[in-house]
Write a protein that binds this DNA or RNA. Structure first.
Lengths: 344, 344
DNA sequence: TTGAAAGCGGTACCAG
DNA sequence: CTGGTACCGCTTTCAA
């Protein structure tokens, strides 16, 4: 076990002045050699480059930001690190790369305080804008009202602030899921919701109930059982459902993770998916493809959402025109967990 | 569809000067009222606070950083956003919170260039240090040699640079996994490796071969089939294994995702896990608990690794003593995919 | 207790 | 083509 003494930090980094002094030229020249080489005599540029190498000089970005007033960074603020978020982030990142930005993930753990902090950081010049990825209720603290940075909502729209958004319509998507089940011939369809405090959960339930009503099935509310966005909650909710005197032939789960839990419960009860009960998930997480059986689910175009959100943020920053609210379409991806109901 | 005109960005944020002018006092006083109120007459402090509120003033962090020379931010640089990374990050975050830092995720997509860029950003004052989470081979570009920022490696040690690290010993861990199988009575044990370019893959294989040799089974190399860290690769590798004239009774998979693929292949062949073939994974990803059956795996203490890495980085930044290389223990978590071999 | 001013490390304008 | 210098917004001596 090697104990490291309070080791010296890397020595003071070279500054532009060091380079200027080394070459006995002005800092202005050094600065130009680096950012606008075409303005200088090639020989000068070369000398500067060499000195820069020799001294290991790197421009201090903080100073650069301060002077320029922009950072080329956007904060991607997310409530929770979830697999669902991957693809969204990939889309953001792709666009950021193309547009010359760095996208940095700021995780809040659903803590409104930290969310506020990150907004502050951005408002205070640490980044140029924020992409607010929402999968749950958001609370942006009032203190920031004066100086909210350029923001676009990703996945959701925001209840209170009227931020520009790139999102999907959960009501429509839930309707699609329900219709898929209906079209297979199911009538006794149950729904396991996500965390009811999350607006998306209530919208999905809303879509479910509406689709059922449109098919002539009233009081579908009674077929809804409250859950959370975890396999454990899905399992518990499915167990409740399995106790009822009359079993559903299909279940619309508010997320893929819930679906995984539901399937486990069904199997534990000695029943089979989809033979006895069909299951449809939501989100099209990687999990739904990996799982055995592969889960039929509502695909949310996460990559595109991320991509377009970043593009929109750029337009805002560049003061170009943009569409305030963009809604992307969802689709049902049919895989192995849905089938027509068994003939009784 | 509402087209938003090139909307005005939030108006120029108030600066410390605005506040000073508003109150007809000096900027120094404003600065002090905010950071060292005890130095001022309480009345002054109050007046300043009010003006700050009124104008919506927030100190510009960039300017503050420039002056103070530190940011309170650490970059968590990761090659790929993976579930495995979650818990590591949670640990980092917990420690960061306790120590008064913000941990920001910088994703490189395994692109050495971007990795270099982030290092630069930090070296150039955008953050105080970096936690380099490695799940694969890393290439830090030479140009940064002069001014590498304070860095600690997380999960791995670095082949070339001798960064301080908090990690596990993959050779030992692989030995544990293999021994578990051996102790159950298995002798025909196969191993599906991860991407062979990743050092961790070769270490795991090394541990496997060593454990087999120690049990008197020579040439275990022949039981190794190359894969990648994905379910698809795991499935393909397992299919290869299933073609062999004599089947293994157990398979040590280099990751949980590989295990998932292997299980799929086994089932597709009409065999059962663990009745016909036992499977052990590695990493203890969330997936291994969610999956049905739950996967026996080697637990890597991801949260602790993250936590301790952040603590170490703080010590480095504070110029305190620290242990250069910290190795945390791993354990086999026995779940549902391993059992004694069938009596033939 | 408060103010004036230097300076953090750059960039860009204005001269020459 | 190059140098001098003001300035970005803030903190912190040094004086008053």
């Amino acid at each position: 076990m090697t104990i490291q003494a309070g080791a010296p930090l890397p020595r003071r980094p070279a500054t532009i002045k060091d380079v200027a002094r080394e070459l006995d030229i002005s800092v202005a020249t050094v600065s130009r050699a680096l950012s606008k080489p075409h303005m200088l005599r090639p020989a000068t540029v070369t000398r500067v480059r060499e000195a820069v190498d020799r001294l290991g000089y790197r421009p201090n970005l903080v100073a650069q930001n301060l002077k320029l007033g922009s950072t080329g960074i956007v904060y991607v603020v997310i409530p929770a690190l979830s697999p669902f978020f991957y693809d969204v982030f990939r889309g953001i990142e792709r666009a950021a790369l193309e547009l010359g930005y760095s996208a940095i993930v700021a995780h809040t753990g659903r803590d409104p305080l930290r969310e506020g902090e990150y907004f502050d950081q951005v408002a205070c010049g640490r980044a140029d804008g924020v992409l607010l990825v929402s999968t749950a209720q958001l609370e942006i603290e009032p203190p920031h009202k004066h100086t909210l940075p350029p923001t676009v909502m990703v996945l959701e729209s925001h209840g209170h602030k009227n931020f520009p958004a790139v999102r999907v319509d959960h009501v429509v998507a839930a309707t699609q899921a329900t219709n898929h089940l209906l079209e297979l011939g199911h009538r006794r369809i149950a729904h396991i919701t996500g965390n009811v405090r999350a607006p998306m959960s209530v919208k999905r339930r809303e879509g479910f109930v509406a689709a059922m009503a449109a098919a002539g099935i009233k009081n579908a509310e009674e077929n809804c059982v409250p859950g959370e966005f975890t396999p454990e909650a899905g399992q518990a909710a499915m167990e409740t459902l399995l106790q009822r005197p009359v079993l559903p032939t299909a279940v619309f789960c508010s997320s893929d993770e819930i679906a995984v839990g539901a399937i486990r419960a069904i199997r534990a009860a000695g029943l089979r998916v989809p033979d006895d009960i069909s299951i449809i998930g939501y989100e099209d997480q990687r999990l739904s493809r990996i799982y055995d059986p592969q889960i039929t689910t509502v695909h949310v175009p996460t990559f595109d959402i991320g991509y377009q959100a970043m593009v929109k943020l750029r337009r805002i920053l560049a003061r170009e025109q943009y569409e305030h609210d963009v809604v992307l379409p969802t689709h049902v991806f049919i895989r192995q967990t849905t089938a027509p109901p068994k003939k009784a």
